[in-house]
């Protein structure tokens, strides 16, 4: 019994320590992102743009392809039920609403986690193992400013941007499947889509995707800085980074879905 309490206590203390470390990282990042540039200490704008291209632009082919296919899948799956009621034209509404509110932000976030969240952890972890982080500190360069702040800015912008494109591609996927397979008239489909587009849905999708971006970047950086003991440690933390990120994405998704359910 005492052993169980002891283990629980140790677990709680560990979680508390993680919480404190993550909070310190958050405060540091925000101050290097917002306060330091105002005080003229600079922000590595070029690095942020390079990372934006890497996280956002370069992820477009895979995000586009997956989202097109998901659009096709949603259309065909919903036709399975709607066809029985002769309501196939509502496929358009279903695809548009689920793309904006749920599927496009989620698929984008998960894909960017796999592509870039893991890469952030691996990069920072390898730098830590190779004493590169220490070298930055000794040179008087803050690793948060040099490495984290540009990545963070890029990620928080890239995820919503890619999400917007993903929404359109997903609707295009739904359109293609409805017209070619189900036999809905393309004009009816487009009309129906336009009718069902609501600002509120888009806002929900984009607000979520900003938080997804925050989660992906912070988990990636935190896990990278946790790396100990060589290549094996980099591998372990990279895996853990992807798993933690996806878990947090689902959690954030749930919180916002519940919030907007009551709004």
């Amino acid at each position: 019994m005492i052993a169980v309490v002891g283990r629980l206590g140790r677990w709680a203390l560990n979680q508390l320590a993680v919480g404190v470390q993550v909070s310190v990282l958050m405060v540091d990042t925000m101050s290097w992102l917002v306060i330091a540039p105002l005080r003229g200490k600079g922000f590595r704008f070029r690095s942020a743009v390079e990372h934006f291209v890497e996280f956002g632009v370069r992820s477009l082919p895979i995000v586009g392809m997956i989202c097109f296919l998901v659009g096709v899948i949603i259309a065909l799956q919903s036709s399975y039920t709607l066809d029985k009621w002769g309501a196939n034209r509502f496929i358009a509404a279903l695809v548009a609403v689920s793309a904006m509110r749920e599927m496009a932000p989620l698929m984008t976030a998960v894909l960017i986690t796999g592509r870039s969240g893991s890469a952030i952890t691996a990069e920072i972890g390898t730098m830590k193992v190779g004493e590169e982080i220490d070298a930055l500190k000794v040179m008087g360069l803050n690793p948060i400013k040099y490495l984290v702040a540009p990545k963070f800015a890029a990620m928080v912008l890239a995820v919503p941007c890619v999400t917007v494109i993903a929404i359109f591609i997903m609707i295009l996927g739904g359109l293609t499947a409805s017209v070619l397979v189900v036999g809905v008239d393309s004009r009816v489909y487009l009309d129906m889509t336009l009718q069902s587009l609501a600002e509120k849905d888009l806002v929900l999708g984009l607000v979520k995707s900003v938080f997804f971006g925050i989660a992906i970047c912070w988990v990636g950086v935190y896990r990278g800085l946790q790396v100990e003991g060589g290549a094996e440690g980099v591998g372990r933390q990279t895996t853990s980074s992807v798993v933690t990120s996806i878990f947090l994405i689902i959690l954030i998704d749930l919180v916002f879905t519940v919030l907007f359910y009551f709004v």
């Binding site: 190779g130 220490d134 070298a135």
Partner: peptide, 25 residues
């Protein structure tokens, strides 16, 4: 200045950029 055991050069940028880094910053 510090010279690390494994040299700890930043692997993502060229040797010249590594040397220039403290000057640039």
């Amino acid at each position: 200045g510090m010279c690390f055991q494994g040299s700890a050069l930043l692997n993502s940028i060229s040797v010249g950029e590594n040397v220039a880094l403290p000057l640039r910053e």
